[in-house]
Write a protein that binds this DNA or RNA. Sequence first.
RNA 1: GUCCCCGUCGUCCAGGGGUUAGGACGUGGCCCUUUCAAGGCCAAAACACGGGUUCGAAUCCCGUCGGGGACGCCA
Length: 517
Amino acid sequence: MSTPRLRFAPSPTGYLHVGGARTALFNWLYARKTGGAFVLRIEDTDVERSSADMVTGILDGMRWLGLDWDEGPEAGGAHGPYFQSQRLARYRELAEQLVREGHAYYCYCGTDKERPDGPAFAGDARAAASGGGSAADREGGEGGTPRGESWTYDRRCSRLTPEEVAAREAAGAPRAIRFRVPEGETAFRDLVHGDITFDNAHIEDFVALRSDGHPTYHLSVVADDIDMAITHVVRGDDHISNTPKQVLLYRAFGKPLPAFAHVPLILGPDKRRLSKRHGATSVTEYRRQGYLPEAMMNFLALLGWSPGSDQELFTRDELVAAFSLEGISLSNAVFNPEKLEWFSAQHIARMPSPELVRRVEPLLEEAGLWPVRPGPESPVAGAPGPAIAWLARLVELLRPRAKRLTDFVEKGRPFLVEHIEYDAAAVQKYLSSPEARAHLAAVGEACASVEPFAAAALEPAIRALAGSRGVKAGALVHPTRVAVVGRAESPGLFEVLELLGRERVLARIGRALRLGA
RNA sequence: GUCCCCGUCGUCCAGGGGUUAGGACGUGGCCCUUUCAAGGCCAAAACACGGGUUCGAAUCCCGUCGGGGACGCCA
């Protein structure tokens, strides 16, 4: 077989959500693994609900995740255009071809609500589900004999005489094009689920071209997948029941079927399909929350796919190397934000320092914390080397307890502002007693003279001081921590002191001493 | 309702005729420790149910139940 060609075909009626992102990821992984092409196609035939902003958002989300496409918007390609709204003539041509060849017919029924005599259906699924419509009702109607037991369009327009057609055309009745579903069964092989067979009696004569000339989903995907030479259709399980219609279309066009692979859906904690009401579902939202894109990719890849081993942490390249369609699981998966956070922490822990600094810096800038303003208490003032080197030290100090990039902003704040805020509870707990304040004052004196002002010298000095004062080191450490960062938690105190520098440490201890005086 | 898909710890995955049913997240405990994390160790925690087939079933078959999805001139 020629090289694989895969595609991700979102409709720009919303942002890129995690389900779509994972579908895109599986397609991308397979394309990259096999050296095939990854095509991005925008399915914007629903003019009402599509918007250019959504396209931009989806593209941004893809880029953030690192899912680059070989053909599509902004990339071009030999099979364009890649916006369905620019391919309308092609769909019409194909729809007319179907009619010409007897695979489809004109339908003048209009939509359900447009018809004065109600649905032209042997039954109405929604009404029946809510208690309406008996079997007797269904079978009585004019021309309405149910084919099989499903409630499908009664095909009344397929039986129109030439005179009736002429009359409707003369009256200027809007017409859609409906596909004529043949008798029999439609089967296809799914790479994930195996062979799947549908009785055609359950497939209705679906609309291929709307009366406004726009194609429906079934026509446009098949037309595009044929024209774009797509070899593998990897998409959500929710498309399984659409597939027989599309298979019928491929046959009517006389084209070979692509390989289908339907991947399980991503569910919310309530086991229902993940949606807005489950909270954050857009990829952009996770980006905003500070998750690393490589963590998101890693997490998403393992939702519904397994390498067959116990390995969980993967780099992008490792995923590409390990990926295979055989590892896709059969059952739906619940999205677990806590595990995502774990992946994020793990990827932060493994990221090379310069890269991590490069990611943190813009967030600090956005928060107005970087670059630091010049001044006597500027954190980098007394520090050796360029400011970026100082930032790298800060990032390394914070790294072990960072789960997201935003943690560097929040936990880094005391190191980047001149006047820190004091947490009331921490002050109350560690700085309110006279003993604590006396200890703190003593630490201040020690800090004024210890040489060099580095963790390696500070630690023995402060421990010795604790010994001479007859207390445990903690009795000095805790008040000092609160004094210099304003909180009860921080990285190791001695490293904190060193990074802060003598000037700022002494200033903050002095201020803390005056705090409740 | 009809059709389709699915069913291993709370969650994500491994296993797939004979295993003490494995790993990870989360949870609990312990260790480390100046705090908080991180890290290390330990623990609790699952084969939906019922029939077959078989010497033997979590694994194969059937049924039941449960869950999900699709039934638009949405995609």
